[in-house]
Simulated assay, not measured.
Amino acid sequence: MLTGVVAAGATAVVGTGPASAAAPVDLDEALFRLPQAEPMPLSLLVGQVAAARRDYCATQYARLEQVLPALIAAAEATRDVSKGRARDEAHLALARSYVLAAELASKQHSDAAWVAADRALAAARSSGIPVAVGEASRQLAIAMRRSGRPTAAVNLLTKEAADLDPSHDQTAAVRTTLLLTGAYSAATGKDKSTALSLMDEAGQQADRRPAVPGLFTVEATRAQVDAYQISVLNALGTPDEGVDVAARLDINRMPTAERRARAWTDIARMWTALGDAPQTFDALRRVEQEAPQEVRRPALRALTAGLLYGPARVEGVREFAARTGALAG
């Protein structure tokens, strides 16, 4: 969807060196004080957004946090000097840059997710591209859910899903991801009937249509539906019903390290709820194998600490906790 070049020159803003070589970035502060940036050729901007997406999907969160502020600033500058179709495409690049910021902020349990998601949705609506609106709406709903407003999140997601054309593969795929996120949001609000209804609709839609590669951060596949079903059952307080789902879930078929790590995280939560410490630890080690940075997130450290300080003694947990930052002191 992104083609063409803005008639303004600039160089790339996203560095290729390791993130450890740069000073730490506070994403919360950076979103309110974006660096100065010049507009760049649109094709180059699109390439930078694609590179940032690859970092997210590969769970290279430290590097992503370094590059996002400059990327967003460049996208805004490019949008400001663009006209016509090029301006729509620059809005899409900007929306997706903010989607990545919202994804990262959510993983960090940061309130900056609200800011990034709201800006993503504004840019997406300005682009006029339905897929972008769906992607950004999903991020805003996640921020709503995390702030304790699951019903509002479900309402937003179902409304946006209804506006997407189910007859086209890409919009249908985005619609499926909205339904999945809506199901989990309803489950966190203990609305069982809505959660199961949305899961059923998403599953039927995923089975009816071919998998669509290239969705921005979440694919619409049967494997993804199964992974979300485990999340929903955990949230509804029926983790035992997820055991059979986990047994049939082929995580290796999920295309990105971020999604594979998320699936193992949900399985770890399932085993934690069922009181099976060895299985929980095995799932956490699978998360680390897929994505070493993922297992250091606050939610994962909490799971690890629960094993470390819980009643069951599992060999290797203390070393794992020290390695992943969950060991207090």
Results as ranks from 00 to 15, higher is better:
L104C: 02
S147C: 12
D111Y: 07
D200L: 14
M144T: 08
W114H: 13
A73Y: 01
A211W: 10
S137W: 04
T221K: 08
R96V: 06
D111C: 08
Y98V: 03
N234C: 04
A283E: 03
R318N: 09
E294W: 13
T265Q: 10
A116V: 01
L44M: 15
W264I: 05
A101R: 00
S193T: 13
A8T: 10
V212L: 07
Y309F: 15
G242Q: 05
A102I: 05
H91C: 14
V131S: 10
L215H: 05
A112K: 00
T304G: 01
R175V: 05
A50S: 10
R262E: 11
A235V: 10
L2I: 15
I142T: 12
P239S: 05
A235P: 07
R253M: 13
P35Q: 04
V287N: 04
A299Q: 12
V243H: 02
P210A: 15
T238W: 12
P239V: 04
A116R: 02
D244T: 13
L34M: 09
L284A: 00
A263K: 02
A62P: 02
R85K: 14
L31M: 08
L42I: 13
G84C: 05
S126Q: 15
S197P: 03
A283L: 02
L140Y: 00
A51K: 08
V6Q: 01
S185R: 10
S106I: 12
Q48V: 14
L27V: 01
A247M: 11
R260D: 05
M1K: 07
R323T: 14
M40S: 11
A187D: 15
S106W: 00
M144V: 11
L92F: 12
A263S: 05
R209M: 13
R125V: 14
L64R: 06
S127R: 07
G148C: 09
V46N: 14
D26H: 03
